[in-house]
Design a protein around this nucleic acid. Structure first.
Length: 488
RNA sequence: GACUUGGUAGCUCAGUAGGUAGAGCAUUACACUUUUAAUGUAAGGGUCCUGGGUUCGAAUCCCAGCCAUGUCACCA
């Protein structure tokens, strides 16, 4: 325990000895948050309106018989308080308590409630003259003292490991971090509003699954004691949402927390949020347009504009998103002249030639690798990559004209896969074949059964919410938009 | 998993050609009745990530490990 922490615990004891509860349960009246107070400041001064606010102390400047205290509240705004013994009303029996409380026992980080009146100091700072002050919560663990002058931050709390492990401190001390998570919340709410306006239904499907399907990833494994069997945290909710389409919903969506037991990097967290969204009687072409509408809606409602600055470049989300076929794009960038029929041998030779590491010698892996190595990073402006071969898309419907390709697209922006969508395969016999080809140990037969009952033509999309939010808030690491990123 | 950079006070960081550590803010004490990164004076605070090795002596050099940053691989 640090010296400072010990001192604060001593202070806490002394506060209690004075008969003051440092963690009172009484609800104190609040009639302004600081943002609103600053907005109404002129009116408040004119009408001499009494103010009741609370907030966390960020700085104390003690004079001999008076003090200035800066507090910040949930509105993320700061206001200066002026404390002078002559203006303080009696609450406790002995007014000296106030002196003790203030001079000796209040610290940066404490949460207080005050009542008083607004006035302007000689230096033209709007300030509250304290009439009453109550300690609401004592801060015992000293928070980093970040100082700000002329919008320049000194002694910034910026150690990433500490920030992520103690996100509560990060949020208190770094205003811009709190803003990111406010935006995250607004974006998710806006998506919900948009989808609800089309009468699509938000649903909840199992996180604990018997068979982890809908994607190809290593699952987290757990165990049910009563059933005496393994259960898996979902890697995807895709197969469940399709069951619901079979069940007759017009459209369903879920903000799905998925779990994948794989490594962590700036685009991957073991648990992450995907918006999965399925609409019956529509196809992937419809989804391209609808998805762009959604993106435009998010930008308009969240940022009040459709041009978003990312890495000093501007993306206009109203511009029609380009469509490029996967192999056309690869060939354009690499001149390799490959397609869905290119043999495994030839693909392996290409990898050898370009020194691309391949662990698993499968066509789908190699093509993905080629795309990642030569194409992905060059994409900045939004692009729909389309026409993936069947062997890369076991759940997607065949293209009518080119039977080795699927009706699928992925959206790439700034070198990152943001979304993946396709017209859903609804032929149960073919689906079973493809599952078998995948060498899956466990095939979700119940899902096949649901397809046998008949799923209407359906389009589905998965949108990486963490990645999308990182993109829109101009962060290049999803840890910055996940409140508690996984750490060892 | 590979490489990379780093881990020193509550926070941000400096430092030593190897002689057990410094600054600013924060903390404590005193002064100051309008300051605002308050100021002035004084003081306290450290397993220099952990464990080995080299050395008379290691926070510094070497080895191993742990944790993290970044890049790459893996994650259709």
């Amino acid at each position: 325990m640090s010296e400072q922490e010990k001192i604060r615990i001593q202070k806490l004891k002394k506060i209690k000895l004075l008969g003051i509860n440092p963690y009172p349960s009484k609800k104190y009246k609040i009639n302004y948050n600081i943002k609103k107070l600053l907005y109404d400041k002129i009116k408040i001064i004119k009408k001499k309106k009494k103010i009741y606010i609370s907030g966390r102390i960020f700085n104390i400047r003690n004079m001999s018989k008076s003090s200035f205290i800066d507090i910040k509240d949930y509105s993320n705004n700061k206001i200066q308080l002026y404390y002078n013994i002559n203006y303080i009303e009696k609450i406790y029996k002995n007014n000296k308590y106030y002196i003790f409380l203030f001079k000796k026992y209040l610290d940066i980080g404490d949460i207080i409630w005050i009542s008083g009146n607004l006035f302007i100091t000689k230096l033209k700072e709007y300030t509250i003259l304290i009439k009453k002050i109550i300690l609401l919560s004592k801060c015992i663990y000293p928070i980093p003292n970040v100082k700000i002058k002329n919008k320049k931050i000194y002694y910034e709390f910026k150690n990433k490991e500490k920030r992520y492990r103690m996100r509560y401190i990060d949020l208190i001390v770094n205003d811009k971090i709190k803003k990111i998570f406010l935006i995250r919340s607004i974006i998710i709410n806006n998506i919900r509003k948009f989808l609800n306006s089309y009468k699509y239904t938000e649903v909840d499907t199992p996180i604990l699954q018997n068979i982890p399907g809908g994607a190809n990833a290593k699952p987290f494994i757990t165990y049910h004691n009563k059933f005496k069997k393994k259960l898996y945290l979902r890697i995807s909710n895709e197969l469940y949402l399709k069951r619901l389409i079979v069940g007759g919903f017009k459209g369903v969506y879920e903000f799905s927390r998925n779990f994948r037991n794989e490594s962590i990097d700036k685009n991957h967290n073991p648990e992450f949020t995907i918006l999965e969204f399925y609409v019956s009687y529509k196809n992937h072409i419809w989804m391209m347009n609808f998805f762009q509408k959604l993106l435009i809606y998010i930008c308009k409602k969240t940022f009040n504009k459709c041009k978003i600055k990312i890495n000093n470049k501007t993306i206009d989300f109203t511009k029609k998103i380009k469509k490029i076929k996967l192999f056309d794009y690869i060939n354009e960038k690499t001149k390799l002249n490959i397609n869905e029929n290119t043999s495994l041998k030839k693909l392996i030779n290409i990898c050898k030639k370009f020194k691309i590491d391949i662990n698993i010698k499968k066509k789908e892996k190699i093509i993905d690798n080629i795309f990642n190595n030569f194409c992905k990073k060059n994409i900045f402006y939004p692009v729909f990559i389309t026409d993936y071969p069947i062997y890369m898309s076991p759940l997607a419907k065949k293209n009518i004209k080119y039977k080795k390709l699927t009706e699928r697209f992925e959206l790439y922006i700034n070198g990152i896969e943001i979304a993946n969508a396709y017209s859903e395969l609804n032929d149960p016999i073919e689906q079973l074949k493809r599952f078998k080809k995948q060498n899956k140990n466990k095939i979700d037969k119940d899902f096949i059964k649901s397809l046998k009952i008949g799923m209407p033509p359906t389009v589905g999309i998965g949108i990486g919410i963490d990645r999308l939010i990182a993109l829109l808030t101009n962060n290049d690491n999803i840890q910055e938009v996940i409140l508690f990123p996984q750490m060892k």
